[in-house]
C-alpha cells in the first residue's frame, strides 16, 4: 500500500516536539495526555485447587494524547480488551498505575466523560433502539426532552432512524453495532473507547462509522480504537500500539511505522546480467533481480545513487524507480514474528 510522504501534525507528534524542546512544552504535553499507564499489569487466576494464571497484561506503558485517534492492535487474546476494561474500572489491575483525564483509576469522573462500545455487546432484547438509548442516557444522568432529542438524533446519525421503534431482537449484527456506536456517543464523550467497532458492519456502514469518528476527532474528542482490522486502523488512526501476549511491542505514528524503509524497486528495460547484480550487491543489501525488476535495500540515498550510476554505466535504461512503503499489515506481521518490544 502506498501513500504520500507528508509531515505529521498529529497531536502526538506536536506533543513529542514540545516535550523535546522545552520544559513548559513538557508541562503542556502533560496536560494534553488523556490516558497514561505505567507498568500496568493484569494476571487472571482461575481454579481453586489447581489454580492457573494468565498474564493478560505485562507492565504496559502507554499514553494517549488529547484529540488523537489511537489504535491498539494485536491478535486475539493479546490483552486489548482487558486494557480498556481496566481503564474503565470494569476490571482491576494486578499492579501498576494509570491515570485517565488526570484521575486515578476507579474515579467515576472517568466514566462520566467516556463512551464505550464493547466487543460483542448485548442489549436487553425486549427494548427498542430508542428505549435502549433512553436507558443508557438515563444512566449517564441525562433526562427529559433533551435526552429524547439526543437519542433520536444519534439514531438518525447512525442510520437507524427507521428502526428506532423496533425491538432489538429483530436487529441484524450490523444494526446492533450501529446502535452500540450511538450508545457510546450519548454523553458527548471526550474519550471514546471502541472495541472492534466495524465488526459485522457492511462496507457502507464502515465508511459511515469512519466518518463519524473523523467528525468526533474534528470536534476534539479522543478516540481509542481496539481492532484487528488493520486496513481500517490505517485509514483513521494517528498513532498505533502493537500489543501481543500482554506486552507492548511497538508504538508509533502510522506514517513512522509505514515510512519508506529505503527499499526500492527499479524497473529496467532489459534483463540485468548477473555480473551487474553482483556488483550492485557490494553497495546495496537484499539485492534481488526478477527479470527486468530489481529490488534493493540501501542504507541512504547516496547508496541509491551509486546503484543508479552502476546501472547507467552499464548502459541500462531505467524505466521507473519506486520507493517501497510497508503496509501496516506487513509491519504488524513482522513485529509479531519478531515478538520483541522496543
Amino acid at each position: 500500500m502506498s501513500s504520500e510522504n507528508n509531515i505529521s501534525l498529529s497531536p502526538s507528534s506536536i506533543c513529542h516536539y514540545l516535550t523535546k524542546y522545552s520544559f513548559f512544552g513538557y508541562l503542556a504535553c502533560r496536560l494534553m495526555t488523556i490516558v497514561e499507564t505505567r507498568a500496568l499489569s493484569k494476571t487472571f487466576r482461575s481454579g481453586l485447587i489447581r489454580s492457573s494464571r494468565v498474564e493478560a497484561l505485562k507492565a504496559v506503558d502507554l499514553s494517549v494524547t488529547r484529540g488523537e485517534i489511537f489504535g491498539l492492535l494485536g491478535p486475539n487474546g493479546a490483552g486489548k480488551t482487558t486494557f480498556v476494561k481496566i481503564l474503565l474500572s470494569i476490571a482491576y489491575p494486578t499492579s501498576g498505575d494509570a491515570q485517565v483525564f488526570g484521575h486515578k483509576l476507579g474515579a467515576i469522573h472517568i466514566r462520566k466523560k467516556s463512551g464505550y462500545l464493547p466487543e460483542n455487546h448485548r442489549y436487553p432484547p425486549f427494548l427498542t433502539g430508542l428505549q435502549t438509548l433512553l436507558l443508557f442516557g438515563g444512566l449517564h444522568g441525562l433526562k427529559g426532552p433533551s435526552l429524547m432529542q439526543k437519542a433520536r438524533s444519534l439514531l438518525e446519525r447512525v442510520g437507524l432512524k427507521d428502526w428506532m421503534n423496533v425491538k432489538i431482537k429483530r436487529y441484524s449484527k450490523g444494526m446492533l453495532q450501529r446502535l452500540g456506536m450511538a450508545q457510546a456517543l450519548l454523553n458527548n464523550p471526550e474519550l471514546l473507547f471502541l472495541d472492534e467497532p466495524t465488526d459485522g458492519v457492511d462496507p457502507v456502514g464502515r465508511k459511515e462509522i469512519r466518518d463519524v469518528l473523523k467528525d468526533l476527532r474534528a470536534q476534539g474528542a479522543t478516540i481509542f480504537l481496539n481492532s484487528h482490522l488493520l486496513s481500517e486502523v490505517e485509514l483513521i488512526c494517528d498513532r498505533v500500539a502493537i500489543l501481543d501476549k500482554g506486552q507492548v511491542l511497538r508504538v508509533g505514528t502510522i506514517s513512522d511505522i509505514t515510512a519508506p524503509q529505503l527499499e526500492y524497486e527499479i524497473q529496467v528495460v532489459t534483463p540485468l546480467p548477473q555480473r551487474l547484480v553482483d556488483s550492485i550487491g557490494l553497495v546495496a543489501k537484499n539485492v534481488r533481480a526478477e527479470g527486468k525488476l530489481l529490488h534493493v535495500a540501501v542504507p541512504d540515498t547516496r547508496a541509491l545513487n551509486q546503484v543508479i550510476d552502476l546501472l547507467r554505466r552499464d548502459g541500462i535504461f531505467i524505466e521507473t524507480l519506486t520507493a517501497k512503503r510497508a503496509s501496516l499489515e506487513d509491519y504488524f506481521i513482522q513485529v509479531l514474528k519478531s515478538g520483541e518490544a522496543t
Binding site: L88, I90, Y116, P118, N120, H121, R122, P124, F136
Partner: peptide, 17 residues
C-alpha cells in the same frame, strides 16, 4: 442477566458505583 458478557461492560462503564 446484568452480568452476562457483553452486557456487564455496558452497565459497568456508566458513571454509577
Amino acid at each position: 442477566s446484568m452480568l452476562e458478557k457483553g452486557t456487564a461492560e455496558l452497565f459497568l462503564s456508566k458513571p454509577l458505583s
